[in-house]
């Protein structure tokens, strides 16, 4: 319920009863509005960088967005692989950071599968099978979700560890820490960790 509606109701009640009752009603209405708002949010934490798990995460995100929910996805550690740009320069980073960035896949089309990876053949096989069954590709799911209003927050700490900069990630990603994630989680009626 919007704040305007709440104050309207309260002024109606003020006419009928005393100020004390009205104040109590206002407090209850505001608490109720907060609870109703909670039903509209989903928080997701994507820690896994495997193709299948990232795929599941973005299917759920898209579904929730279609259901009219506000979805926040906090992406941390290996999950960051899924939201990297396909190519970016590692210039100006330390030796170890460069090594890590060089060894990790860049973007959704380079991810390994958690099972049956077979040194990179597995993902190609699954992508082929998914295409045959007309399942949407992972990069399209990510694009569609962000267009639909998915809020992606990159974990500042793991980005620092790996030498990742905000501009290495897909456009529109915000950067935040654990408090940002928890704040979103407390405002949601469910939180998923993938």
């Amino acid at each position: 319920m919007a704040n305007g509606e709440v104050s309207e109701k309260v002024s109606d009640i003020k006419g009928m009863a005393g100020d004390g009752v009205a104040a109590k009603v206002q407090e209850l209405e505001e608490r109720l509005a907060k609870l109703e708002d909670k039903n509209n949010n989903l928080t997701m934490i994507l820690m896994s960088g495997e193709f299948d798990k990232a795929f599941a995460a973005f299917i759920i995100a898209n579904g929730a967005l279609a259901m009219g929910k506000e979805v926040t996805m906090f992406v941390t550690f290996w999950g960051l692989d899924a939201i990297k740009k396909p190519s970016f320069s590692t210039a100006g980073r330390g030796f170890l950071e460069k090594m890590v960035l060089w060894m990790r896949p860049k973007g959704p089309n380079k991810l390994a599968t958690s099972k049956m990876n077979f040194a990179g053949i597995g993902p190609k096989l699954f992508r082929y099978m998914m295409k045959k069954k007309k399942v949407e590709q992972l990069h399209n799911l990510i694009e569609m979700a962000t267009e639909f209003g998915l809020k992606i927050i990159g974990c500042q700490m793991s980005m620092d560890v790996m030498g990742l900069k905000a501009e290495d990630l897909i456009d529109g990603v915000e950067v935040g820490g654990v408090a940002t994630m928890l704040n979103s989680s407390y405002k949601s009626n469910s939180t998923l960790f993938i």
């Binding site: 579904g63 967005l65 259901m67 069954k133 007309k134 399942v135 949407e136 639909f148």
Partner: peptide, 11 residues
């Protein structure tokens, strides 16, 4: 189309 596209497109 397959999941989740029909629901996405509906929405």
């Amino acid at each position: 189309m397959s999941c989740p596209m029909p629901i996405m497109k509906t929405a």
